[in-house]
Computed example of a mutant assay.
Amino acid sequence: MAASRLELNLVRLLCRCEAMAAERRDPEEWRLDKYVGALEDMLQALRTQASRPAAEVLQEYARKVDFLRGLLQAEKLASSSEKALANQFLAPGRVPTTARERVPATRTVHLQTRARYAGEMRQELLGTDSAGERELEVRKRSGVAGPRPAAEKHSAAELDLALQRQQQLQEKLAEEMLGLARSLKTNTLAAQSVIKKDNQTLSHSLKMADQNLEKLKTESERLEQHAQKSVNWLLWAMLIVVCFIFISMILFIRIVPKLK
Rank of each mutant, 00 (worst) to 15 (best):
A45F: 05
D26F: 05
A157R: 11
W236K: 10
C243L: 12
M238I: 07
Q225M: 10
L235R: 15
R122C: 11
E29H: 08
A78P: 05
R148V: 02
M20V: 11
A99Q: 06
L10Y: 04
K34G: 08
G132F: 08
L180T: 03
A91E: 14
A150Q: 15
I240Q: 02
G93S: 02
E152P: 00
Q200I: 09
V242E: 08
L235A: 12
L77N: 06
L90A: 09
S142D: 14
G132Q: 15
K258W: 11
A156G: 07
T218K: 12
S205M: 11
G93C: 05
L184V: 07
C15A: 15
P53I: 05
L90R: 02
R25M: 12
E29S: 10
N87F: 03
R222H: 06
M177R: 12
A54K: 13
E23C: 05
E75L: 13
M208K: 15
L169C: 04
Q228N: 11
S230I: 06
T186P: 01
E124C: 09
A131R: 14
A237Y: 02
L173N: 09
R94K: 11
A91V: 13
A145K: 13
L39C: 14
E75G: 11
R31Y: 01
K153F: 14
A86V: 01
L235I: 06
Y61P: 03
L39Y: 04
C15H: 14
V241R: 04
K153A: 15
W236T: 02
Q192P: 01
S81M: 07
M20R: 12
A237M: 11
D160R: 15
T106D: 01
K140W: 14
W30P: 00
L234V: 06
L173S: 08
E60A: 04
E23D: 03
P53G: 01
H226D: 10
V95R: 14
E224P: 02
R182H: 08
H154T: 11
R102G: 08
S203P: 00
E224A: 08
E82C: 03
G143D: 05
E18K: 02
T218W: 00
T106V: 00
R63Y: 00
Q228M: 11
R148E: 12
A2R: 15
E152G: 01
A19T: 10
S248T: 11
T98I: 01
L72K: 02
R52C: 05
K258I: 12
A74M: 04
S142G: 03
K34F: 10
R148P: 01
N9P: 00
P147R: 12
L202A: 15
P149Q: 10
Q73S: 04
L169Y: 08
L173F: 00
V36K: 02
N199D: 07
W236F: 12
R47V: 07
D210M: 04
A38Q: 13
E101V: 00
L32R: 04
A227R: 07
L161F: 13
A74S: 09
E158H: 07
S130W: 08
Q200P: 01
I245K: 07
G119C: 07
T128D: 09
K258G: 12
F252A: 06
E60P: 07
C15P: 00
N232F: 11
I195D: 01
L71N: 02
A190L: 15
V138T: 14
A115E: 09
F67T: 07
K172V: 04
V256R: 14
L234K: 13
L239G: 10
L180M: 09
R222M: 06
R31D: 03
